[in-house]
Nucleic acid binder design. Structure first.
Lengths: 405, 405
DNA sequence: ATCATTTGTCTAACAGGCATACTAATGTCC
DNA sequence: GGACATTAGTATGCCTGTTAGACAAATGAT
């Protein structure tokens, strides 16, 4: 409850972050240029860079060898990639584990396809912990310092406690994923649990194709439909981190019953299996998702009418929901992620049509609808949200860990 | 584009704000208690309070005369009320002007009922400027320093330029209200233009009844329906300040055409005149709004079935839209404002019913639906949003104005 | 070889918060 | 009534951190 007061260390922390993020965004750069571009004093920058090198988040990258430059050559610094985080995505029918370092490089990634609907969480987490342990060991072996662990889940997550409160598709309601997984692993500095679509949105913000919008909703379509909202370059989480439940926007007030208990949620019209069923595909139990979205794509590309119609119905519903979402959230863009990215060619048309009439500010807002080129958004976002601690406040995040050996 | 770096003045500015807001929220208080409650050092607080008194935002309020206390009696300080701002609400059928001081006191308030639909803005602003000039003169006469002017408008506002982009009900599209009004008045430190519902939400946050939610949507129902979203105690504005257009959430995809061009917006089912018409009231042209909502209230209270049914239809639609809004925004509460506050007894029931089934996180979110007790939200919010500058950063906002005489 | 130019570090000055010591004003207890 | 405890507010010296400017280092141009 005590208000947040400031003192000199607040200033230092803020400026360490400014320099670090500037290097992240601009790549290898000299101290002099950092000073010129941030407005900080040369000597301040020297001191800040020195501390960041000590924390092992920056590293010297030799002299800037650009020809034609007069004067003493600049010694550049860049992100070190020494610190790394593990990202995990547990979805309805697959699990992905990836290790990403501070420089944004994906160190390793593994994916396992398995239908987890109704499976008890315990054994899954046991197995997962073994995999993660292996990845952590691998990261250490390659000289990296594991900073933390991020977990992407397809449902309502209480981020404070790390509990998956409600996952209508997975049916792991009330599972304390964060705590359970932590207890199976060596201690880490940070363990964070978040909704998968929120993390996919973060991945888009961090790693998406240029030009990256700063106000957008990432619509993540798999068996369920989720949304992650980014406003002014930061994740919008709402009161408890439940924001962006885009799949449960009402699009047909008296429509089909949804897993969440309401009627006519977007998910009941635009979920991947719903699209497939409406397109006439027979779903075998345990059907593997990758073949599912690929199958739809193939049929649509071949001009199969029922599939195209089904995608059109989904597109209209998505567009309608997006109109409402845009009116409430004031967005600049929609990014289609997950299976929706693959199916984008057939979705973008109806989405744009609906948006044009339903989004009030359309005329003043340069709206874009694009497909994400990131296929592993949630895992990368999961790693990223953990590493973001370091970019936000390197000294607090790393404290004395830099000296850990 | 240059990143925001910090130095010692940043610290000072932040702490000045912390102390000022602490005094605002806690009322008359001693320097010692400020220190204890904020965690700042006693001497720092002394110095900060000294500067705030010099800026005339705080004032000495004598000794704390509570009996039974041992030790030297405390000298308390409180908000001075020396600085004041004018709030203006231009709505479809009325204009309100109010002066509010830094202590939150409404110094004066005037309201004019007139149907402005289609009226040219110029003459209205001429007349308005005269009224505002009079209010400013009055404020000066009572020893107050006019700080700024806030304007609440029923439509899409470009807050950067102060232009009313689109007001479907008022039809003043593209009017540069901020600039036009500024040119008719003595110069002021700040002129801000905002959507009326956003400002009503701010008023609720600042002046509403306890306990005040910190994550809510204020649904402002008059002839149009608007929404103002507050997340974690601050106004959610979205990418361009267009957020919270709650009246244009789609609730009936193939419903009636709305003034905004879309079909089945909430406004087409729950706007005040729509409710009245559906209840069988004959609307004379230029009918005055206060009699309209009062008439509905009277009939409903008398148990008139058509009126109650009409309100129920509106309530269901509002509840449906709120389910969607809550799923996207993750809210803790709904506050009904404007005419909806008066009609709340007949709206709350259906709203809560719909919300319970449609809001996914309902079980983990202690949701409340309440009626606002503030009848002049937009004007008060308009004044408040201007005064907020001072609370955010007193030194920057007031600079050398404290010495103006 | 000398000079201009640019980089990076060093030093002194300044801003601001903090701990501590001190003075001031009150109530309590004998 | 006076000594003492208690609390409020101020003054002093120190620490952290940024800044401006001086300076040394490293290079290309003349």
């Amino acid at each position: 409850m005590a208000p947040v007061t400031a003192d000199q260390t607040t200033v230092r922390d803020a400026n360490l972050g400014v320099v670090l993020r500037h290097v992240r965004d601009g790549g290898a750069i000299s101290r002099a240029r950092i000073a010129a571009e941030t407005g900080l004093n040369k000597s301040t920058v020297s001191s800040l860079v020195g501390e960041l090198i000590e924390l092992e988040v920056l590293t010297d990258t030799g002299l800037d060898e650009r020809p034609g430059s007069v004067g003493r050559p600049a010694a550049t610094v860049a992100l070190s990639g020494r610190h790394a985080a593990v990202g995990i995505e547990i979805n309805v029918d697959y699990i992905t584990v990836a290790v990403e370092d501070l420089a944004g490089e994906t160190v390793s990634e593994r994916q396992i396809w398995r239908d987890l609907r109704g499976a008890p969480p315990g054994p899954v987490l046991d197995e997962l912990a073994v995999i993660v342990g292996g990845e952590l060991a691998g990261a250490c072996a390659s000289g990296r310092l594991p900073y933390g662990l991020g977990i992407a889940l397809p449902g309502l997550v209480d981020t404070a406690s790390g509990v998956l409160l409600r996952a209508p598709n997975l049916r792991w309601d009330g599972a304390a994923i964060g705590r359970e997984l932590a207890s199976r692993l060596e201690p880490l500095r940070a363990i964070r649990v978040e909704n998968e679509s929120n993390l996919a949105a973060l991945a888009e913000l961090w790693h998406g194709e240029q030009p990256r919008p700063r106000n957008f909703i990432l619509v993540f379509g798999e068996i369920g439909v989720g949304g992650g909202v980014v406003i002014d370059g930061s994740l919008f989480r709402g009161a408890h981190g439940f924001a962006g439940e885009f799949g449960h926007v009402t699009v047909a007030p008296h429509g089909d019953r949804c897993g969440c208990g309401a009627n006519g949620c977007l998910e009941t019209l635009a979920g991947l299996e719903v699209i497939a069923r409406r397109a006439g595909l027979a779903l075998s139990v345990g059907e593997r998702n990758p073949s599912l979205s690929a199958e739809l794509r193939t049929r649509a590309a071949a001009g199969e009418a029922r599939t195209i119609d089904s995608l059109d119905v989904a597109g209209v519903a998505i567009g309608m929901a997006l109109g409402t979402a845009s009116n409430l959230l004031d967005l600049d863009a929609v990014v289609l992620g997950g299976a929706f990215a693959e199916l984008a060619p057939w979705l973008v048309g109806p989405i744009e049509r609906e948006l044009r009439t339903r989004f009030m500010a359309a005329r003043w807002s340069p709206f874009r609808v694009v497909a994400s080129s990131i296929t592993d958004g949630p895992v990368r976002g999961a790693a990223a949200i953990v590493l973001r601690d370091i970019f936000d406040n390197p000294r607090v995040a790393l404290d004395s860990v830099g000296s850990a050996r």
